[in-house]
Structures are given as C-alpha cells and as structure tokens.
Nucleic acid binder design. Structure first.
Lengths: 144, 144
DNA sequence: CTTATTGCAAACGGTTTGCAGCATT
DNA sequence: AATGCTGCAAACCGTTTGCAATAAG
C-alpha cells in the first residue's frame, strides 16, 4: 500500500491524514511480525525524528478504534500490535515473545463447523482464534 | 482440597508450606473465575490481615514456577490467574474482562487430530488453546 | 540452626493524560 | 478559520525488587 492509498484509507475511516499517522500505519504494514509500540517508534523515528512515543501510542489507539489495527497480548507485559486483520491464528514460540501467524482455511472451516453443531447457549461467537504454544525442533531458528 | 492436602501439595512441589501460600492457593482453588492479584489479595486479607500485595505476587510467581497456577492474559493490562490446569479453552465475553472456561473433549480430539495430520514443519506443539470472543444474547447475564 | 519467605517502601516500566501550540481539512 | 492532532512532561498503576526481620524444615 503506497502513501496515497494509506492517506485514503485513513480519511475513509475518519482520521486526519497526518504525517505521523501515515508513517505509523505504513510501518505497521511493513512489519510481518508483531511490533511493540517501541518498535514502531524507532521505525517511524527514521522518517520523523521529532515524533514522540506518546504520539505512537495515541496513533495506534486511533487505528485500533477504527479497526485498522489490533493488539496481541504476550506473556511478557508489552503490548504487540498487528495490522493484518484477516482470520489467522497465533503460534507462540518458546517462553519468549516470538509470535508467528498461522493461516489455514481448512482449520477455520473445521472450527466454524464444530461451533455450528455445538453452539454455546445464549452466546454469539464473534471470533475464533487458536493459540498454539510450542518450540522449534531440529536446530531450526535456534541461533538468532 | 482441604488445608492438609494443600500443605502436602506445596511440600511435594518443593515449597515451604507457609500460611500465606496455603491461603493464596486455597483462594485460587475457591474461585471458579480468573482472579487478579488484587482479587486474591482481598480474599486472603480476610484470613491474614497483615499480608502484603507483594507477597501475593511472590506467592503466585512461586506457584506458577511449580506449575500449580498459570496466567491468563486479557485485553486490559491486568494479569489474571488460573489454578485449573486441565485442558480447557477460554471464552472472552464482551469487550471486558470476563472469561469463561470451555471444556470439550470432542473439540480437543478434533484439534489434536487436525495437527497430527497437518503438523507444522520443525515445530513441536505443546499446547492448543482456543479463544472465543463474543457476547451474550437474549438478555442473559446482562445485569451484573 | 539454616535457609527460604515475608512485608515494607521504594523503584520500575509500559502506557496514559493534560494541555499549549500547530497542522490538516 | 475551526477542529483535531502532536509532543512534552508529568502522572499512573500494575508489578518487581532490595533488604531486614521472621518463620519453616
């Protein structure tokens, strides 16, 4: 998504297209992983050196309110953010903070099916999300 | 679980059976919901008025380390604790902090089956947990 | 008697807030 | 020109820590 498209997206959602918001959202879209506010801060600082951390938080809050971004809670106490809002699940690697997205239409179908057959009384399900916890095996990705 | 059993359980896990730990663990077992540290604090304070919040935190940390308790992350910034460690899923009600346990052997089988057939390369799954988000319908539970 | 645990008060760290100045529409 | 946004610094609040006094094994 280029700058012009980001501008439009922000306007469409009733947000003024300030440089700060454009850069924050742009940074969110650039990172495949799940950045913290600080991560975004350092990324955006390269473009707007004078930006402050609280603007990052304010901006992320606005984006969340407009459903352009969501939060992911980790086991540590930092909030991580996610700009990819299509249905996906999360793989939590090790005890740490690494989170990987997991997409599977087959799994989604399976789950939707299950809860269609086993609906919960007086409860309307809005989102079904899986958390997988585990570890790499075979020395894969162990030397970061 | 009575006091004597709790004492034994603590000892078995290499923890000195102090009154504080006994009361904290007892309080954890009493609450079906997912209490915060503050919740446990007020519960235990009824038994041990002099107990301090930091002891609650320290004690919960010990219990977590010995796998007698686990944490549940919510969308707000408070940590909630859970002393029921058998495989269950969580239903997040509304935007708030209410969390309900969901047990289903059939669902667990379905998921284990799925990931047996669709294993993730170089990754060993240790826990599969579902998060359902949604809301009550039919005026059920709306006046708390 | 030894070692671990408690409780206090102070520190910590991520996040939020109030507000004056400024940029966007 | 009017409104909403930014950036600063200070506040906030859940959680952690250092340490002297105390209790458990």
């Amino acid at each position: 998504m280029n700058i012009e498209e980001i501008k439009n997206k922000l306007s469409q959602h009733g947000l003024k297209a300030t440089i700060q918001r454009i850069q924050v959202y742009s940074a969110m879209l650039k990172t495949k992983s799940h950045p913290t506010a600080e991560d975004i801060y350092s990324m955006v600082k390269a473009e707007i050196p004078s930006i402050s951390l609280s603007t990052i938080y304010n901006t992320l809050d606005s984006l969340i309110e407009k459903n352009l971004v969501s939060t992911v809670k980790t086991d540590s106490d930092v909030t991580r953010y996610d700009a990819f809002l299509d249905s996906h699940h999360h793989i939590y690697v090790g005890g740490g903070d690494e989170i990987i997205d997991y997409y599977s239409q087959e799994l989604d179908d399976l789950l939707n099916d299950f809860f269609k057959k086993n609906s919960i009384p007086n409860f309307e399900i809005k989102e079904i999300k899986l958390q997988l916890k585990g570890d790499y095996v075979n020395n894969q990705k162990e030397n970061n």
